[in-house]
Amino acid sequence: MSRPATIIGFGALSVDDIYYVDAPLQAGKGRVVRRASAFGGNVATALVAASRLGAEASFIGWLDEDPDDPVVAALKAEGVFTDDAPRAAGCRPVRSTITVGSDGDRFIAFDDDVRLGTAPDLPDTVLTTAGALLIDGYATRSPEAVFRARSLGLPVIADMEWSEGETTDLLLEACDHLVLPFGFARLHTGQKRPRDVLHALWSDRRSAVVLTDGSNGAYLLEADRRPRHLPSHSVSVVDTTGAGDCFHGAYAVALVRGRDIGDCVKFAAAAAALSVSGRGGREALPTGWAVDDLLEAKGAPAFQLL
């Protein structure tokens, strides 16, 4: 067994082929000005973000049994533990092709016909020694692990981007911290206004519902049932790839450090804002001091009641 990890997670690991073009995506076409390959994945990038912010992080999803697997090596190089991850031959990463427009917006095409989730016999000690569990949409491959984590009292922070029907509904119901893209949450609930989406997702079992909406900022509902909006930071955008994953990981870091929910959202939003200044999902993931500096800067956004 590895040392106890503050933040654990399972979900997507990916290898990304990234194409930067000289026009916005809405233009329909553009000239490629740069190509790059990088490692990504929702939970994997969130855990790397948590590690850069000073937390102990551990990936507990399926990994290839090859000790020299480059995806595993990339996680370890970022300080993410993998000792508790189940292993099997032929566990390939998701392969993604990402097109990034001149305005930093991106489109992701992916092939996820790979083994995802985690082992059904994951030891309880892995869950009970952690401070939070991060999951993404691929938790639908191992919902029992999420339900067990909640039964053991572990906070579960969910970042879903698509629905796989009843299993997704059950996972969303079980998770106490929903950190969801506004676009997905709006489609899932059938509501349009942020305040209505927040209320539709709320239940008394929740600690927080957070909606991330890019340059429009973030929305929060917690136990006081007063929906709030946090405007975005004013930053220069190079590439938005991984910004949501960074938000997810930074939120977990603030949570396990005992910050209140509002401060968790502020910390996560500042980290995500810094992350869009570099190319790919991990290049510009910030350190804790950089996040604190941005939060303390003059004119930093503050919550407003919706």
Rank of each mutant, 00 (worst) to 15 (best):
D84G: 01
G11C: 11
R257D: 10
K298M: 13
G281D: 12
C175F: 03
W162P: 00
V156E: 09
G288P: 05
V209S: 01
A290Q: 15
D105G: 10
K266L: 15
A109T: 13
S163G: 03
V114T: 07
T241F: 00
R282W: 05
S37R: 15
I108D: 11
H177Y: 15
P301W: 05
L211Q: 06
A254N: 09
G183C: 10
C246P: 08
L221D: 11
V71C: 05
V265R: 13
L25F: 11
L53N: 04
S2L: 05
D69Y: 00
R150I: 06
A284T: 03
D112Y: 00
V72F: 06
A243H: 01
K192D: 13
L255V: 06
Y20L: 09
L127H: 10
L230D: 06
S207R: 15
V209P: 05
S215F: 03
A300R: 15
L116K: 07
H177G: 02
S14H: 02
L13Y: 03
V209Q: 02
A208W: 04
K266E: 15
I261Y: 10
A243K: 01
A145E: 04
G242P: 00
A250D: 12
G190S: 09
K29V: 05
P155W: 14
G281Y: 01
A139I: 03
R106L: 07
G214I: 11
R228G: 01
A85L: 01
G117Q: 13
G190Y: 14
D68A: 13
T82W: 09
A273L: 12
V100E: 08
G30W: 06
L171W: 00
P70R: 06
L295A: 11
V209E: 07
L178S: 04
P286T: 11
S236H: 13
A149P: 01
A5L: 11
V253A: 03
T129S: 14
L180D: 04
R52H: 15
L211H: 07
V156F: 08
Y19K: 07
G11S: 05
D176V: 10
F147A: 10
A38D: 14
A12S: 14
L255Q: 14
A174K: 11
Q26L: 14
A254Y: 07
V126M: 03
A5V: 06
F147S: 06
G278R: 01
Q26E: 14
E161T: 03
D176C: 12
G104A: 13
V100D: 11
V238M: 07
W202P: 01
E164C: 03
H188P: 02
